[in-house]
Amino acid sequence: MKIAIIVPMEIEAEYYRNNFHSGKKEMFGSTVFEHFSVNENDVYIGLSGIGKVQAAMNLASLLACQKIDQVFLTGSAGSMDPSVHKEDVILVNSFAYHDAHNTNAGDYVEGQVPGQPARFMLDSAQRADFAKYLVDNGVEFHEGLVVTGDSFISSQKQKEKIKHDFPDALGVEMEGAAFAQVARQFDVPFVALRAISDNGDESAEEDFDVFVKRVGAKAATLISDYIEKMK
């Protein structure tokens, strides 16, 4: 099986290198992917960069060249719900764009890009298997909607606007919906695990710097362990 693990930031990618060894590097498009053999699976670990365009471009470059069987996204997010706290993890079941406003352009809902679904649902058998792994190993996690946009959310005003449009959103970040859109176009199962680094308010910038390393390591440890145990 060929598995891709995508992370937005170098600080998040380094934790996978601590778990997987003896890899080689391959260039796909403008992105270097490190290629490892883990439990007889081919694992490609790539750094997408930050934001929707970087995310879509770099995942598409890989999927256009390799027949990938499953894509994992990991990394950090800001909390959008009082029940979701720093260092919690969200197993995403859907993504939407919080900065797509097309309701005046036709029969679209908030967050929907014309020609695309209102929400990108993550409901594959692979995701269900990963959820079972989390449950079986006693890992507490949230399940729900995470919203994506090209801005780092760091004020209560920004947060309240998003929450008004997406009252069920649990988290906010800058790449996930773009990854989900590309994975859908290529018909590749997509599993996303986001760990909370901040509350998406005025404390976000300070909290992000403190917690991003910690939550990046947490998410990487879970996915690395899962892949090492895959049959």
Rank of each mutant, 00 (worst) to 15 (best):
M1C: 00
I3L: 05
V7T: 14
I11M: 14
Y16K: 12
R17K: 15
R17F: 15
R17T: 11
N18C: 11
S22T: 07
S22A: 13
K24F: 07
K24N: 14
K24A: 09
E26T: 11
G29Q: 04
S30A: 11
H35Q: 11
F36E: 06
V38G: 05
V38C: 08
V38M: 04
E40D: 14
E40L: 04
Y44Q: 08
G46L: 02
G49M: 04
G49V: 07
G51D: 12
K52E: 07
V53W: 01
Q54N: 15
A55W: 03
A56D: 03
M57I: 12
M57A: 14
M57T: 14
L59Y: 01
S61F: 11
L62Q: 03
A64S: 15
C65W: 03
K67W: 00
I68P: 00
V71W: 01
V71H: 01
F72C: 09
L73C: 12
G75L: 03
S76Q: 05
S76H: 01
A77V: 08
A77Q: 04
G78C: 11
G78A: 14
M80G: 08
D81S: 15
D81A: 13
K86F: 12
V89M: 13
L91D: 02
L91V: 07
L91M: 12
F95T: 06
Y97H: 13
H101F: 12
H101V: 12
G106K: 09
D107C: 04
Y108A: 10
Y108C: 10
V113T: 09
G115S: 10
P117G: 09
A118M: 01
R119T: 13
F120W: 08
M121C: 02
M121R: 07
D123P: 01
D123G: 10
S124R: 06
S124A: 11
A131T: 10
Y133W: 13
V135T: 15
V135C: 02
D136L: 08
N137Y: 08
G138F: 08
G138Q: 13
G138T: 08
F141N: 09
V146G: 07
V147Y: 08
D150I: 05
D150C: 05
I153D: 05
I153Q: 04
K159T: 09
E160G: 00
K161C: 06
K161W: 03
I162V: 13
H164L: 10
D165C: 07
G171R: 00
V172Y: 04
E175W: 03
G176P: 05
G176C: 09
A177D: 03
F179M: 14
A180K: 05
A180G: 15
Q181Y: 02
Q181P: 06
R184K: 15
D187T: 12
V188P: 01
V188M: 07
V188C: 07
P189H: 06
F190S: 01
F190R: 02
R194E: 03
R194I: 03
R194P: 02
A195Q: 02
N199W: 02
D201P: 03
S203Q: 13
S203N: 13
F208V: 03
D209F: 01
V212Y: 06
K213C: 00
V215W: 00
G216A: 08
A217E: 15
K218M: 09
D225K: 13
D225H: 14
I227R: 01
M230T: 05
